[in-house]
Amino acid sequence: MQHETRARDTKGEIHRVALELFSGQGYEKTSLREIAEQVGITKASLYYHYSSKQDLLRAIIGTFFDDIHQVLLRIETVEWSLESEQELLNAYLDVVIKHRGTGPTVLRDVAAVLAAFGDDLDDLIGRSRAFQLWLAGPDPTPRDRVLAAAAVEVVGAVLSSGLEPAQLGDAELRQTLLEAATAVLSGRRNVPA
């Protein structure tokens, strides 16, 4: 009889439990001891993976920021067109939906996120504004810029909706948000037909 053994994904379990606790009761009210107990490891074992609660928060939210950053960098090499707009909106949506479980933590504990990311967050905000300007289209009017910012916020609605994947699956959520963001962008006046 052959036994198949699978290596335990301890870091993955730590992330999942920490994200549930941070989202449910808040970053400040969650202790590393509580996370370790729910994962089924000792606090010392948790410290082996993460030196502090802030280090753990950076690891969890950092993957979201890294993935968004990669999409936002694409505007530097992709010329605006209706086709490239849809392509980048789809890429942006993919990242936001992939990390939809991170949203409640980001929104609930903004101060902790700010403290954990500092200058990196400033860079991300700057790149997000550049993405919004790119989405506004060629020679945007102030109205076009507001519509582009609104379209990005529509996509971000997945982070604050509180809907679980069982309530609205990724594919349906993706299509809904893409339609909504595209509808908002269709109000721009400067975009060639």
Rank of each mutant, 00 (worst) to 15 (best):
S128L: 10
I125K: 15
H3S: 11
K29I: 03
Y48C: 02
Y92M: 14
G187Y: 09
K53E: 06
L89R: 14
T102S: 13
S52Q: 09
V113L: 02
A136D: 04
Y27Q: 05
V155G: 00
T5C: 09
L46F: 10
H3F: 14
E79V: 11
E85N: 10
T105G: 02
R189A: 14
T42L: 06
G101R: 09
E28F: 09
Q175T: 13
Q25E: 14
K43W: 09
T102G: 02
E34W: 05
D55A: 15
A36I: 03
D139V: 08
I60V: 11
G12D: 01
T102N: 15
T182A: 11
L163K: 07
P104S: 01
G26F: 01
R188K: 14
A183V: 08
I35A: 01
R129F: 11
D139P: 03
A115R: 14
D144K: 07
K11P: 04
S81W: 07
L135V: 00
G137N: 00
V184F: 00
D123Q: 15
I35H: 00
V17T: 13
Q2H: 12
P192F: 14
A111R: 12
P138Y: 02
D170H: 02
S160V: 04
E79Y: 07
T141D: 06
F131W: 05
H69K: 13
P165A: 08
A115I: 07
Y50T: 01
A148R: 04
G162E: 02
T42A: 13
T30E: 02
D94K: 12
D122V: 14
M1I: 06
I75L: 04
H15L: 08
A18T: 06
R108M: 07
L46S: 02
L168D: 01
G187W: 09
I61S: 05
H15E: 06
S81H: 05
Y48T: 11
V146I: 15
Y50N: 03
L173K: 01
R129W: 13
G103M: 05
V113W: 00
G101Q: 09
S84K: 09
S51M: 08
L147H: 00
G126M: 12
A181S: 15
D123V: 14
S31A: 10
A193E: 13
E13H: 06
Q86C: 07
Y92P: 07
E164T: 07
Q2P: 08
R174L: 05
G118T: 12
S186L: 05
Y48M: 10
